[in-house]
Design a protein around this nucleic acid. Structure first.
Lengths: 197, 197, 197, 197
DNA sequence: TAATAATCGAGACGGTACGTCAAGTCTTCCG
DNA sequence: CGGAAGACTTGACGTACCGTCTCGATTATTA
């Protein structure tokens, strides 16, 4: 999105159009993913010209990226409370919930799929979604290691790969459900039991 | 592929054409993935008509699926030796190596990406690639549980999700390298150290 | 049709196949004309292989040409009786009837249409259908001129063009019906009234 | 052609593209007729996308119909002068000249051929080419009958069929040349000699 | 209160790939 | 060798979507 540009003159960008586009992108996204979503459709459904879409986004992947971010950013932002371990567990649970939520699951899958052959999108996805959580998780797990030096802790990077990897694995490969119990199983298996209290 | 059908009459299917198509699919696959691979290109490069491709495969995803299977089936088939745990570790290492191998990495990524919006492909991928390994791994881990009942074992399904999930996570999300040391880290963290001897 | 070839050895040509092909061609011809008739259809409907068709005919136009000739040759062959003028009139009536007959009208139209961009077919059509009638008509009209030198006769070639031209004109351009009364009108207008007795 | 529609908004239709398509159609038409003319070729030769062609014409027959109309409409439009009979004779001569003119002969033959299996085209051809001339000719011949009641006139419809029929007959069946002398022969034979002064 | 300037909806444009279809040829096995 | 079956190459078809472009109309700031 070209929000950085700010000409002092001329007709200002239509906020209505921006919103309509993002909403249309969300509404029209089906199980067919990005390939099943066409810019013409989005434009028609949003009551917007294709020109307007291409003026502000480079392609439909970028549109969906924005649509996804806008819809989910607040859900992951709320700060967790409790011990470091508890906060880590909360974070993982939240991501799992996101992957289950109807409004977020399909866009997310579509974005991950598209990012496999779209380097820019892959970067954007990592920068705007993965990196934050990964940094926060690393900090929390390092804190755990400092506070409980006697524990036999695995490297934070490895542990994060294991837990988050399992979430993505179910989301993308097996397609199985991601309920809270399953997430607890993953966390218990990697952090040890009784770490949720 | 319709290899199952076997009419006694008529001109037999050209094995040369079949091979040329699969090889062309492998050779022409770039980082652009399936969207960057066109049936016209494959046909031209293989010296085969589009018609022939569509006679035997429903779409280019199916072609690439066959191309991938043909190229990698033997690499994963060789039986591992040693204890149950050793054999499990070997299996995981082999999958990781596959994900690293130039000839297999790109096709695999492309197939996983495409399977996100292609239900048939997703099923085929699970049935022909994931299911076998998962069943074998489950058997091995159950054997471990029987032989070492004192061990604090996690459920096989969870453990498999964790380990394989981490592999897919690096392959699809972070794009980081999957070397043997990293795989050992994953296995040590989930199975315990000293399980490789 | 390659009837000229007559090898002394090997399996003889199947008369059953030949007939089935020509009948299938007649039966499958619709208002779509030659373009709407496919060799695959003919082969399937006749229970014959495409190979067999291409062995004996160069293309589907030739097949239809044979099918048409076979079905209509006898209808035009019966000798007319009476005076020269009467025999000429009979000949014209017979051609008009042919153009009306369901079994002949469509094949004929299709052949004339196809002959516009198929030189071989055009030649065949002229040689095997037009030329005979034209020669006979010329002979008859010259005989009339000899027998009735006082009559103000137009050149046979012009008269034939006028009368037959009108038939083709209705067949191909206006598509109007060609009944006997209309044909008599044409003949009366060109030969003079009272020439039918 | 959808020239009737006139939306006030959107990018206006490219006159350049329209012209280029029609010209390409004329230039690329060979003795192979419509079947030998491909939309891809027209598009490439006109520097236009296939899309644009299909946006404005339903098929290549419609393109050629427009190309033909555009090139010939003015040639037949100029009013003839003289008596009713003279004007009729002029009209017939003009059509004959059209059938001889290199720029018009092939398109016309191709259109008549195609109209044998294309109902829409047949209607268009009759409505836009045949009907006008036929109506005008009928009017002229009726005027002749009124002015010269003593003459032994044949029905206008029959006379038109005879004369124009002969032109089409030569054009489509025998392929012979249509020079002015021949046309005069036809007119003399049907209207009587000395009607050209 | 204009003039300027960027946006907007609409929709035509060139380009590329799609998946289908028919033509005509070739390759097998069976009488 | 003829014939049935059916796979093969070739080439055109008509469709769909992409991303760009050109209109007239709109809505701001600047003069």
């Amino acid at each position: 999105m070209h929000t950085d540009e700010n000409p002092r003159t001329g007709r200002p960008r239509s906020e209505r159009a921006r919103r309509a586009v993002l909403q249309a992108a969300r509404e029209l996204l089906t199980d067919e993913g990005l390939p099943g979503l066409t810019v013409d459709e989005i434009a028609a459904h949003a009551g917007v010209s294709k020109n307007t879409i291409y003026r502000w986004w480079p392609n439909k992947a970028a549109v969906l990226m924005d649509a996804f971010t806008e819809a989910t950013s607040d859900k992951l932002a709320a700060p967790a409370t409790g011990t470091a371990i508890q906060r880590f567990r909360t974070q993982v649970h939240r991501v799992a919930e996101l992957m289950n939520e109807p409004a977020a699951r399909r866009p997310f899958i579509a974005l991950v799929a598209a990012s496999q052959h779209d380097l820019e999108l892959a970067t954007a996805l990592r920068d705007r979604f993965v990196a934050d959580r990964r940094a926060a998780a690393t900090r929390l797990l390092e804190q755990v290691a400092r506070e409980q030096p006697h524990r036999q802790n695995v490297e934070p990077g490895i542990l994060i790969d294991l837990v988050y990897g399992a979430l993505y694995y179910r989301l993308l490969i097996t397609g199985e459900h991601l309920d809270a119990a399953y997430v607890d199983h993953l966390l218990d298996a990697t952090l040890g039991h009784g770490t949720d209290g």
